[in-house]
Design a protein around this nucleic acid. Sequence first.
DNA 1: CTCGCTATTGTGGGTTTCCGCAATAGATGT
DNA 2: ACATCTATTGCGGAAACCCACAATAGCGAG
Lengths: 207, 207
Amino acid sequence: MTAPRPGRIHIIDDEDTIRDSLAFLFASRGLAAQGWSSGEAFLAALPLPDCACIILDVRMEGLSGPETFNAVRGAGCEAPVIFLTGHADVPVAVQSLKAGAYDFLEKPFNDNQIVDLALKAMALNAERETGEEARRDLAARRAALSAREEEVMALMLTGSLNKQIADRLGIAMRTVEVHRSRILTKMGARNATELATLLASLPQSDR
Amino acid sequence: MTAPRPGRIHIIDDEDTIRDSLAFLFASRGLAAQGWSSGEAFLAALPLPDCACIILDVRMEGLSGPETFNAVRGAGCEAPVIFLTGHADVPVAVQSLKAGAYDFLEKPFNDNQIVDLALKAMALNAERETGEEARRDLAARRAALSAREEEVMALMLTGSLNKQIADRLGIAMRTVEVHRSRILTKMGARNATELATLLASLPQSDR
DNA sequence: CTCGCTATTGTGGGTTTCCGCAATAGATGT
DNA sequence: ACATCTATTGCGGAAACCCACAATAGCGAG
């Protein structure tokens, strides 16, 4: 259950030495890793279906670590990112973490330290993906609702009675009932309460 | 709307110079601030009803900044914390931010920088308190439920029918109806759907 | 022991939900 | 023009919900 498709660790660093030694380290621990010599190269390869964790050097030729990070997120990749830096760069560390990086590690680092971090990040990623899948599924079902149905659903969730919804929308109660029924069918809920709980369990789907 | 009760900025630093200059700076910008010469002194004063933001030095005699931070959170104070450090301490910064600090600033810092940060932190705190209030209110109403009622509510939220709940709990349907009614009254909802939406809007109330 | 709280169950009945069957109408697409 | 999709509405009925009125029973507090 812990590793049906663990995914890979992607190492982005313009120094061959670091990249290769990290790749070797991970390989020796049975972890799949892949190196990229620049932020640009990695970005060009997105989307990567096996991206479970990203290790990103802060200072690089071309795109910097933080710049690459932003672009990666912009490309829709939500995998946890571990920054590496050779300099005591507190402002960058603070900025990166506040922007959503998973961790920020100073070189030189201990082998076990980076492996542990990567493992934790990958575990987090697995959890995230699970939730993501459910969220995507729900969003897909929700996208199948017509505009009118969305409207009715919004009112349903406030606990309004069909009668009230009908008055509010200026339509017959029977029409609301039909919408309601379709909504429940499309969303896979047996009643309004289950629908509310379902939507609540997967946040970020508002509006 | 932005400042009915802004609260104070609490500055914890064992260096009088820093404390006083910060206090003076904030005062000159019309912000109420109060200094504390040690983590211990501040902790002894908790709970502080006017705590809108905490500025905390990392290295101090006695309790360190991080230690104080943990104790503050342990004491139930959730105000945003801004760490100050005179040293390029990346690991501490990372650790602090991951533990929930609001920001981590290196000395020397610009006057406008710290004031801006404090203002943002206080704004965040105001938002947090608003939500907190609603959450507390809901929690209070929820606490008024009997054990049996909690049990019935949990099943209600899954969308179970009264009949099913009755079977599950081995009681009569009528009894479930009574519980259901009491639950809705106590929680201030008109029906199960509204209850579900209500509970969903204020997370962190599980279990 | 009596008071108060909670849990429990019935009866009867009004209200709301949910559905099948049927039909009209406008918008879109082939 | 014809098919498809969505919105609409009516009728009638089964199932579920909600509630007032009433009553029994156990448990801890005073």
